[in-house]
Write a protein that binds this DNA or RNA. Structure first.
Length: 314
DNA sequence: CTCGATCCCTGGACGC
DNA sequence: TGCGTCCAGGGATCGA
């Protein structure tokens, strides 16, 4: 499953292989995962001017021939710029790509036959094709211009690699949801998925059902630190390949060898040898050590108390 | 606000 | 060998 480290790996690969290429043609097969397939014709003639990761999304920034003229003429650019911050560069549109569970975006020689599940193919100006392949089609693609792009960006949570101690603690400790749900919530932190949520909770010795508001400042900071360490290490190792993740070069990552909790049900905890357990939290499998990550005390809370506490929000 | 349920989709695991 | 069944899982959505 592509999470932040996997998407970062793909982005880095694409930066080396297709950055600066111009798209000459667009082919679309199945399109039920595309917001606006009809608008993809506009991609033709545009250059891939930048490739960025935004949470689990990839953003291929496009520029047509007359970048400067277009930027001067289009006021919406300012919106997109302020939303993503920094840089004086202007882009009129972007291709948004989410790999979902099984998506792959990679260049291919034009002679190579399409994979059974290749749904989109962009013909490039060097003769190759940039292809999107996704058996389950849980991914998403969209051609976005200024306003829609800005809306997408605004709704996202903090970048887990950039977020500081104070903001991390605030985002986690102001919520009554369980920490696992908060980590998976893309509007809280963008880019964290099931694997890295479980790995960081194991490292921080925090039970996945622990309520965010009940974490101490110290626990929150420990979680932030280990999450960042784990994400950075995973990026170095080119991500985790568990089911079928392959990077833009078709190569698997290595980080799955370092998993301490995820996928290890019944196997001994690396710290205390207690068998790792699996429970469903926030609708997702959650692997944890029942000894190192003790269950929080019943989070029942009487109806009365709960409503009183929620009165003062904001 | 937070939760669980449901749906989307297909390949892989498993049972017979 | 071949079928049927179950399940994973990110995210959207909806009712409680």
């Amino acid at each position: 499953m592509p999470e932040l480290p996997e998407v970062e790996t793909v982005v880095r690969g694409l930066q080396k292989s297709v950055l600066g290429r111009k798209i000459l043609s667009v082919w679309i097969g199945k399109s039920d995962f595309i917001d606006n397939p009809a608008e993809f014709t506009r991609l033709s003639g545009q250059k891939i001017a930048a490739i960025e990761r935004f949470g689990k999304f990839m953003l291929l920034r496009l520029a047509n021939g007359e970048e400067l003229a277009a930027a001067a003429a289009a006021p919406v650019v300012a919106v997109a710029e302020s939303a993503t911050g920094e840089k004086g560069e202007s882009y009129t549109a972007s291709l948004l790509v989410h790999l979902g569970m099984t998506g792959q975006l990679a260049p291919s020689a034009a002679e190579v036959p399409f994979d059974k599940h290749t749904h989109v193919s962009f013909g490039l100006d060097d003769g190759r094709e940039l292809r999107y392949t996704d058996p389950r089609r849980f991914g998403r693609m969209a051609y976005l211009t200024g306003e829609l792009l800005a809306k997408e960006v605004e709704g996202a949570g903090a970048d887990p690699l950039e977020v500081g101690a104070a903001e991390f603690a605030e985002r986690v400790r102001s919520r009554n949801a369980r920490i696992k749900a908060l980590l998976l919530d893309q509007s809280v932190f963008r880019g964290v998925g099931n694997i890295y949520a479980d790995e960081s909770l194991w490292r921080a010795k925090i039970h996945p059902a622990h309520v965010g508001a009940k974490l101490s400042v110290k626990e929150a900071e420990t979680l932030r630190r280990v999450l960042q360490e784990i994400l950075n290490r995973a990026i170095v190792m080119r991500g985790s390949s568990i089911s079928d993740f392959l990077d833009a070069n078709g190569e698997p990552g290595e980080y799955q060898r370092h998993h301490r909790a995820y996928g290890r049900e019944g196997k001994p905890c690396y710290r205390c040898r207690t068998p790792i357990r699996r429970v469903i939290v926030a609708g997702r499998s959650s692997y944890f050590c029942p000894k190192c990550q003790p269950a929080p005390r019943q989070r029942k809370a009487s109806r009365r108390k709960a409503s009183r506490r929620n009165k003062s929000r904001r």
